[in-house]
Design a protein around this nucleic acid. Structure first.
Length: 748
RNA sequence: GGACGGCUAGCUCAAUUGGUUAGAGCGUUGCGCUUACAUCGCAGAGGUUAUAGGUUCGAGUCCUAUGCCGUCCACCA
């Protein structure tokens, strides 16, 4: 054995051993109890980052532990097309070349991004292997695989037929930079220092005479939107304006007559207590207008510029330019009373920080309440458990306040929605459940004949699904797509939407654990629970384990701009995968952010070396004394104090590590193992054994104990540090040796 | 505006349903290349567990209040 552990000469060889052994593949014939984790598919738009190394480590620990525990395990890997995310990354690549996405046809663009993703997919697969991921490659999936898309379509059709999908003219979050709608979750809030402007809206009649003149004063942070005002609203309890309700005001600069209305959503305390209502460009105003049947005038376009409805003086200006001009004009004509500094928050695109323009737009929505109800129930009743537990509360709070989900996106990179429109304007079809008449219908393929008018050639809408709509189906979609067709389900009353099932699905669904970062709890986990129950009638997983964000030693978030990113594969290259994995899990708690630093990794690299050298010493002793290891029981009578102590400590370690892994306390388990191996075994027992090996009557037994403790330690450490432990196992002179440590039995 | 998390050694973090002497890594001090380990090793120092109360035989852990830091959610113009 070399004097130092060299991961480079070991890791590739060992991974090949595992792959060739066939034990990475789930074997449904084993009749063992199932344990399944569906891997959160990494985005196929770049190499793995340190966060991916975290999930690989944690999931691999669980998978390897359960495999050794005798379960039939399936860890199903995959990669994600990551719609909007990938398109943004790809657009940046184009920008570097001085191009934009608008230069290419959607079809061409899709082809380019497809190739881009395929390239990264290969890289990612290789990186997962280098990290030691013991997943089943024969079942690997891509989120755009045909069979996955088919299942996504089926789910959508069921939702549509159940009347849970609607096309709504609703106010949506529009990113003018990316020119797409965003869900509420994709919008971040940013505090800014702005101004609050107080504008006088003159009254049409003069019956009411507030001192000194006749106007109602409104406060706004966005004066340019006044061009689209269709009312002024006050609180019904507000005595100041009691006599004004029902009056009309003349909109300054525009001249339009608009009413003064009451609505209890108006805050009397804020500003003047009177609010201008711009239904087309403010979410609350939109709702007020809907309830009062007020018209909406869209004055800002999808490009963020003023439309012709804004009037000829303003049309074509960017919204901010328009604001300047409006303020100038108001001031000139005496309508602007005052301005105040005002701190408030604006909505921005989570990717580009561009302020969101709330726009009225026709988008597709899912009625979420029926899905949320069941998703709430299973968590409340503990059918799905969260680790750490306090996420249960956060999840339930979000579910309680959930709003309908905008699932259509105006981007090309994604699954095109299977919706077609009849081109014959007068023909409509009625949805049996929602009873809404519409010219749209769902079809998975290009229809030969229009099912509505029987005459036209229907067109498919260009919108794609929100990525999370498809990834929300990942647990059941993968299992239905990876397995062998088992049987057709004839019972149409069955809650399951699919008319088929597969052996994988039957065996492994509901899956055991969903392990992912807390930052996508709402984006992904919540949607998987809702869609999983809806589509299959069963929960998608029993446990949700959430890990934290990776930060550097100064608690800073890792980001390319800060230059503090740690490239996981660079670390593997330098120090080995085992050191990285151990560093990522060592001394961390579930749900807590993970601090990582070069020093911490070095510390664990030293640990690999310690393990290596302890082994080297033991193997030397055994070969020196030419002891053959037999599987015989230890003779209690001849055990020394040191022997007894190390065996006692070992048993304690087995118990506590097992308990820790079972209860997801991996950081604790890693610490216990580290402490036992280094301090109890190496510092004390191995040192003591040097004397014992000189004593002829106990040297045989001492060798036995050394080997036994080493072997057991390798088993316990294997889920955490798979490469070095496997390499050592292969070198140990054992009888009844298995083909690999990976499938050895977990010590009890 | 609501909710959540954190405060433990110089730094970054652990510590199971309350239970012996609160543990690691890095840093620091001393000793050591003794044939497993200089890619370091061994030994030690370092703590009023944010503050103030309370419950208890016993509190880092449970309760109440306060302070500071952080995060998430939210349609106050």
């Amino acid at each position: 054995m070399e004097k130092v552990y060299n991961p480079k000469t070991v890791e590739n060889k060992i991974y090949q051993l595992w792959e060739k052994s066939g034990f990475l593949k789930a074997n449904l014939k084993s009749k063992k109890k199932p344990f399944c984790i569906i891997m959160p598919p990494p985005n196929a738009n770049g190499p793995l980052h340190i966060g991916s190394a975290v999930f690989v480590t944690l999931q691999d620990i669980m998978i390897r532990y359960q495999r050794m525990k005798g379960k039939e395990v399936l860890w199903l890997p995959g990669v994600d097309h990551a719609g909007f995310e990938t398109q943004v990354v790809f657009e940046k690549e184009l920008e570097k070349k001085g191009e934009t996405r608008f230069q290419y046809s959607p079809k061409k663009l899709c082809q380019m991004i497809w190739r881009f993703c395929q390239r990264h997919r290969k890289v990612i697969e290789n990186q997962l292997k280098r990290l030691g991921a013991s997943c089943d490659w024969s079942r690997e999936k891509f989120t755009l695989d045909k069979d996955i898309v088919k299942i996504v379509y089926e789910t959508f059709k069921k939702l549509y037929d159940d009347g849970l999908v609607y096309r709504g003219e609703r106010i949506i979050n529009w990113c003018p930079h990316h020119e797409t709608s965003l869900s509420d979750l994709e919008v971040k809030h940013k505090n800014i220092k702005g101004k609050l402007w107080f504008i006088r809206y003159p009254l049409k009649t003069t019956n009411y005479k507030p001192q000194p003149t006749n106007y109602i004063k409104v406060a706004t942070t966005r004066p340019e939107t006044m061009l689209g005002d269709t009312a002024v609203a006050v609180n019904p309890k507000d005595k100041r304006y009691k006599n004004l309700v029902g009056e009309k005001v003349i909109l300054p600069l525009v001249g339009r007559e608009i009413p003064i209305i009451t609505d209890k959503r108006v805050d009397m305390e804020f500003g003047t207590g009177a609010v201008k209502v711009t239904p087309a460009h403010d979410p609350l105003d939109f709702e007020i207008a809907r309830d009062h049947k007020l018209p909406a005038i869209q004055i800002i376009g999808k490009d963020g510029k003023m439309r012709k409805e804004a009037g000829k003086d303003y049309a074509g200006l960017k919204a901010l330019e328009c604001r300047k001009k409006i303020l100038e004009d108001l001031r000139k004509k005496g309508f602007l009373e005052k301005e105040e500094d005002y701190k408030y928050s604006i909505a921005v695109c989570y990717k580009c920080q561009t302020p969101i323009e709330p726009l009225i737009s026709k988008q597709w929505f899912i009625k979420i309440i029926p899905l949320a109800k069941k998703a709430t129930k299973v968590v409340k009743e503990g059918e799905i458990k969260f680790i750490p537990a306090h996420y249960k509360k956060i999840y339930l709070h979000w579910m309680k306040n959930i709003r309908d989900w905008n699932i259509s996106r105006q981007i090309v990179w994604g699954i095109q929605m299977p919706i077609w429109q009849c081109q014959n304007k007068n023909s409509k079809i009625k949805n049996k459940k929602s009873k809404i008449k519409d010219s749209y219908f769902v079809s998975f393929k290009k229809p030969k004949k229009c099912p509505i008018c029987q005459k036209c050639k229907p067109k498919q809408i260009e919108d794609t699904f929100d990525t999370w709509f498809s990834s929300g189906q990942w647990p059941f979609a993968t299992l239905l797509a990876s397995g062998h067709l088992k049987s057709k389900i004839k019972n149409k009353k069955s809650k399951i939407i699919f008319n088929f099932t597969t052996d994988d699905f039957e065996y492994f669904y509901p899956t055991s654990v969903m392990e992912t970062g807390w930052d996508i709890l709402f984006f992904w986990v919540a949607r998987m629970i809702m869609l999983g129950i809806y589509a299959t009638g069963k929960i998608p997983f029993r446990y949700v384990f959430l890990h934290g964000l990776v930060r550097d030693k100064d608690r800073q978030k890792m980001s390319k701009s800060k230059g503090n990113v740690i490239d996981p594969l660079g670390v593997v290259e330098l120090y080995g995968a085992d050191a990285l994995r151990m560093a990522l899990v060592f001394g961390t708690g579930p749900g807590k952010d993970i601090m990582i630093s070069e020093e911490k990794i070095l510390g664990q690299r030293n640990f690999t070396n310690k393990i290596w050298n302890a082994t080297r010493f033991i193997l030397q002793q055994i070969s020196k004394s030419k002891i053959k290891i037999k599987n015989k029981k230890l003779d209690e009578k001849t055990l020394t104090r040191a022997d007894k102590k190390i065996l006692r400590e070992l048993n304690k370690t087995i118990k506590s590590v097992t308990k820790d892994v079972e209860s997801f306390r991996f950081g604790q388990a890693a610490q216990t193992l580290y402490h036992f191996f280094w301090h109890d075994f190496c510092d004390r027992y191995i040192e003591e054994s040097k004397k014992q090996l000189q004593t002829s009557n106990i040297k045989h037994q001492t060798s036995n104990i050394l080997l036994y403790v080493l072997l057991t330690s390798m088993k316990l450490l294997h889920p955490f540090m798979p490469f070095i432990t496997e390499e050592i196992y292969q070198r140990l002179p054992l009888k009844n040796k298995k083909k690999c440590l990976m499938i050895e039995e977990w010590p009890i």
